[in-house]
Amino acid sequence: MSITRQSKGDECEFILPARVDGPTANQLEIEVLEVMRGGARTILINLAAANFLCSAGIRVILQYHRQMKSQGKVLLVSGTSPEIDQVLELTGFRDQIVEKR
């Protein structure tokens, strides 16, 4: 359930593991809050390796997407697999939180 973090200036990318379950979602929330407090202006949640994203993970993404947006900053999802696309589609959020390529 390890999350890899790559930072460059005020941009930060989190690379998530294959299974984004409850404990991984909790860890993601801690790490996102940490980089937000550190002044990040762009946060990318890279789901290229993920094939499972639970509702707790979606909640974290949505909550901090909103907070960042309200501050004129960006938090988006990138690199989604077909499985993750399907889950995001079910929630109706896909087009709003996935980075346009």
Partner: peptide
């Protein structure tokens, strides 16, 4: 829209 939606209940 995403800005107005309650976040709970997704599970």
């Amino acid at each position: 829209p995403i800005a107005d939606r309650p976040i709970g209940g997704l599970g």
